[in-house]
């Protein structure tokens, strides 16, 4: 395993029974997980799964309805904005669209120095040196400091956004689909950069993505979300070789393979229908209305009667399904 966090270390982040509602919509409906220092958790789900809301709630960008978020041992849900400030230094965010997150009127040097100024860190000289250091870390030349964001390509702008997120030496970065807006040939550059930064700086990450192939190379553990809940969470090797939840299996099966021969031979489970409205989620298991396993078992009543708990099946692999049996059914990608 490439993760640098050990299973015994105190968690950096502990999220317990997190709920976030927007009016009648339960965007996040009882999510729990923890994150060890230096660990990368892939948070995967389709649009409307609540994955971004979890990331934003952890950083207190979204209001938390209930539940607990402990960061470095401190409960952050009740903190006032003022009390939150010192913690903000330790948690940063990277967004999907780097250009939208960088003020177009500021030169890159100012963009990178600004967080240091806000937190009163370093003198002018020190800040300049830090800016050069940050640019080097993300693979840009020191001269970049004198240019504006629009003078860079999308991939380079994302490098600048990453440098800004690193400025305050955070312990946690929430990266919300950081490569989705980039070209294929540039995506791998950014994934490798984040992996390298984790290795060299020991920064933990929540890497949010809409499909399972993207997080496969970078995450240590992966959590799969559906309709505001985590339906499966496991170490990466476990999740991809023995996916237990029928939704995880469908997600894996939906990703096309770059191999025409395998694509033709593949028997895919294509999910029918679309995500139900989060305003009116199905009773019992939230996936029951589209579940191929439930259908193949002849619609057992448990699926609609009781909400399945996220049960441990061994080695930290947890699955929220009444009928999941990971040992019996090896993955067929």
């Amino acid at each position: 395993m490439s993760g640098t966090g050990t299973h015994d270390a105190a968690p950096l982040l502990q999220v317990t029974d997190l709920r976030v509602s927007f009016g009648a919509v339960k965007a996040v409906d009882g999510v729990s997980f923890d994150l060890r220092p230096g660990e990368i958790l892939g948070l995967v789900g389709e649009s409307g799964s609540g994955k971004s809301t979890v990331g934003r709630a952890v950083l207190r960008i979204n209001r938390v309805s209930s539940g607990s978020i402990r960061f470095e041992g401190t409960e952050v849900t009740g903190l006032s904005p003022h009390a939150l400030l010192p913690l903000r230094r330790r948690m940063q965010m990277i967004f999907q669209d780097p250009r939208g997150s960088l003020d177009p009127r500021m030169k890159v040097g100012r963009l990178l120095a600004e967080p240091l100024e806000i937190h009163g860190l370093l003198d002018r000289q020190g800040r300049r040196a830090r800016v050069a250091e940050l640019l080097r870390l993300v693979g840009l030349a020191p001269e970049a400091a004198g240019r504006y964001p629009h003078q860079f390509s999308g991939g380079q702008a994302q490098r600048i956004a990453i440098a800004r997120a690193l400025a305050l030496d955070p312990a946690l970065i929430v990266a919300d689909e950081p490569i989705s807006s980039l070209d294929v040939s540039i995506q791998a550059q950014v994934i490798n950069l984040l992996a390298e930064l984790r290795r060299s700086l020991q920064v933990a990450m929540i890497f949010i993505a809409h499909d399972l192939s993207v997080v496969r190379h970078i995450a240590d553990r992966v959590a799969v979300m559906y309709l505001g809940r985590i339906v499966e969470i496991a170490d990466k090797a476990d999740l991809y070789t023995r996916p237990g939840h029928p939704y995880t299996r469908s997600l894996l099966s939906a990703v096309p393979l770059p191999d025409p021969v395998k694509e033709r031979q593949r028997s895919r489970t294509i999910l029918k229908g679309e995500l139900p409205s989060p305003e009116n989620p199905p009773s019992g298991c939230c996936f029951s209305t589209r579940c191929p396993l439930r259908a193949s078992l002849g619609d057992p009543p448990e699926c609609t009667a009781t909400r399945p708990q996220l049960n441990e099946t061994g080695g930290g692999h947890r699955i929220a399904c009444h009928f999941a049996d990971p040992a019996a059914t090896p993955a067929s990608v």
């Binding site: 490439s2 540039i186 791998a188 550059q189 994934i191 770059p258 990608v333």
Partner: peptide, 21 residues
Amino acid sequence: LRSAPSLDAPLTEDLTPIEGL
């Protein structure tokens, strides 16, 4: 082919990006 993350590639393999612009 090499740089795109694929469910088909060995799990441990690092991605090999196309460098440059």
